[in-house]
Simulated assay, not measured.
Amino acid sequence: MSDRFIVLSGCSGGGKSTLLEELRRRGHAVVDEPGRRIVQEELATGGSALPWLDLAAFARRAIALALADRAAMRDQPGLVFFDRGLIDAASALEASGGEPVLAALAREHRYNGRVFLTPPWPKIYAGDPERRHGFDAALTEYERLAKTYPMLGYETVILPKVSVAERADFVLARL
């Protein structure tokens, strides 16, 4: 396990990416969400590994990208913050009816034992070309992840609904 690898997970549209930008601004290493990068690439190239077209293919690509991200950050000094990552992708693959890979991947590739979850926050939720699902789907995803992380031995910490700077302070104080 790498105690330096910190996962920010939780509800889609809950402010993870914005929080990551604040942590980056403060000098921490961050890894952007695999899913967003995949969607951007697939839309640009006319691909079909998109969550609304082929969730299993999308999740498999997200797993591969999350593993590559971990390897790329292995020698990065200090804390590294991940916007989602391997557990989220493997959980999505299993939820889509894909192969059961979550337990094995989670055992082999651990993150810090404390995972920070962004709770559902309708006030800031917004769809965009890369986030085409509605708030109800985001809630379903959040509920799945809120169960998955503890099941795998992680302590989940729910982020408060406060300003971005206060959220960053909250995360750093708990590490």
Rank of each mutant, 00 (worst) to 15 (best):
R61Y: 08
T45R: 09
F116Y: 14
R132H: 00
Y142D: 03
A173C: 06
G15T: 08
I158W: 03
N112K: 07
S12L: 10
V162F: 02
R26W: 14
Y111W: 13
R24T: 14
F58I: 10
D169M: 14
G127Y: 01
P100H: 13
R107P: 00
W121F: 12
E130M: 12
L55S: 07
F81P: 10
A90G: 01
F81G: 08
R131G: 00
T18V: 13
L55R: 07
G85H: 00
L8R: 08
K16Q: 04
A64E: 15
F170H: 01
A106K: 02
F116A: 05
P119F: 10
L43Y: 08
E99C: 05
H28T: 10
D83N: 02
P77H: 04
P129L: 04
Y154C: 06
A138I: 08
V7Q: 04
G134E: 07
G47N: 09
L159K: 02
A168H: 01
R174H: 13
R4L: 09
Q40H: 14
W52D: 09
G47H: 14
L55Q: 12
Y149T: 12
E141D: 13
I6N: 06
E41C: 07
R174N: 04
G98S: 03
L20W: 08
Y125T: 11
A66L: 08
A72L: 14
E155D: 12
A29R: 03
F116N: 07
L172K: 09
P119W: 06
G78R: 04
L145G: 02
L86Y: 02
V80D: 03
T140H: 08
D169N: 13
T45F: 02
Q40C: 11
D128F: 06
L65H: 05
G35C: 12
R25A: 15
A62Y: 01
E99D: 07
V171S: 08
L159I: 01
